[in-house]
Design a protein around this nucleic acid. Structure first.
Length: 175
DNA sequence: CGCTTTTGACCTGCGC
DNA sequence: GCGCAGGTCAAAAGCG
């Protein structure tokens, strides 16, 4: 709760349509086309083709030992609704280097898109920030990055100016 | 040698 | 109650 990597006031929530033609709230950053900030958790829809988004935050890592596997993990994640932020950027690369260290832990094909969504996780110990990157099907040049959680450690890498952008975002997120 | 990526399997939640 | 979609983990391979 000390350092907010990214946060910005929700401009206007648009449904999963006409996202690419929305007016950019951040004129300072031509790269950022649109951004959606939702901290309540109940808000669904990440913006991209997926019109349905399960808001449940289940641990997931609990494999049911049906055949005698002694892998029990009764860790029922408390319903701590983590803040999530999704913003669209125009980039040729899926992964935007924001200065943090990410490790890809999964990849799933999106039904509405012929591209796959990549799931990344912050490798920092104790930092359970997750990030998912999805590419719009209609605009392959558009990348939707959704952040979940907030970093509790400083940036490990100094990027050209992305750090500055993030820093600015923190200022905007001061609420 | 260590870390990251990759792919398949599996679980959970929701809809019908 | 079953099926679908989404999300996560685990093991192995590749690369620096």
């Amino acid at each position: 709760m000390e350092s907010f990597p990214i946060l910005f006031p929700t401009d206007h929530f648009s449904s999963s349509s006409s996202l690419s033609s929305s007016s950019a709230s951040f004129v300072r950053y031509p790269n950022v086309i649109a951004a959606h900030g939702f901290g309540s958790g109940s808000l669904a829809d990440a913006g991209a083709g997926a019109s349905k988004l399960s808001g449940s935050v289940h641990g997931g890592g609990d494999q049911a030992p049906t055949d005698g596997l002694t892998k029990k993990k009764s860790a029922k994640e408390k319903k701590a609704r983590k803040p999530r932020f999704a913003f669209q950027t125009r980039s040729q690369v899926d992964v935007l280097d924001d200065g943090y260290r990410w490790r890809k832990y999964g990849q799933k094909a999106v039904k509405n898109s012929k591209f796959a969504r990549s799931y990344y996780r912050c490798t920092h110990q104790g930092c359970n920030v997750k990030k998912q990157v999805q590419r719009l099907s209609r605009d392959e040049g558009m990348v939707v990055t959704t952040y979940e959680g907030m970093h509790t450690h400083p940036i490990q890498k100094q990027t050209d100016n992305f750090e500055d952008i993030l820093n600015q975002m923190q200022i905007y997120a001061n609420f």
